[in-house]
Amino acid sequence: MKIIDFIKEQLAIWRFKKSLREFTKPDPAFLKSARTRFVNLAQQSRFGQNAHSDAKSRILDSDKAESGRASRSNSWKYATIAIVAVFSMTSGMAVFADANNVPATHPLYNFKRLSEQVRLGLSSPVQQVELHQAFAHRRLEEVAELEANHGDPPVASDTSVSDRPVPDKSQVRIDELNKDFQNETETVLDQINPPKAQPEDRAKFCNDILDTIQNRPKHNRPPSPMVDHIKDRCREVSED
């Protein structure tokens, strides 16, 4: 009897399972579409992986190229910044030295001369004459100051400044400045030659420059041959 019951139970379970399978059987159309979709996705994921690795390698390549470009770009950037900084500092120091008319012994003196060249380069011919004249005066002042200090810091001494011997180095510098003064003067004299300037302008400049020389103490005047040469040139210009 128990065996029959057992068989009945198993049959009931088998029938139930069969019914369940029917109950939970998927729609063939759904299975077909889902299968196609799954297989396509599987293939796409492979292509995706390839595309991903390709993209990755492209990204790496582009990263390298980008880093190269960035490095070059950075080099240019730093170079530009350095150039701008140097230019700004140079121009700043030149303007400062020129505006303060620093003496020949000042560390920024060369910047002053540079600024003078720039000003001459940027000026009109008429303004250039005035600038050369002004610079000629500057050279004389620089010589006077250099001779006053003898190129060295002032020292406590009972000897007068003019009696002290001028060191060789300062003398060379004084000679250079006198030469520069002569050059500035000659440049003006060249430029005020007829017919570039009116006779009264030429006379005015010559009188001005000769008065400046004459008004200086004897020990601060340019060398006599130089002064004589300037006087001759002024005479020539005035006679023309």
Partner: peptide, 19 residues
């Protein structure tokens, strides 16, 4: 990305998973 494997896996598991 083997599509044949994808088909076999789907054929084996789709029905019981749906059920």
């Amino acid at each position: 990305g083997d599509s044949g494997s994808a088909e076999k896996i789907f054929d084996h598991f789709s029905k019981p998973i749906y059920a």
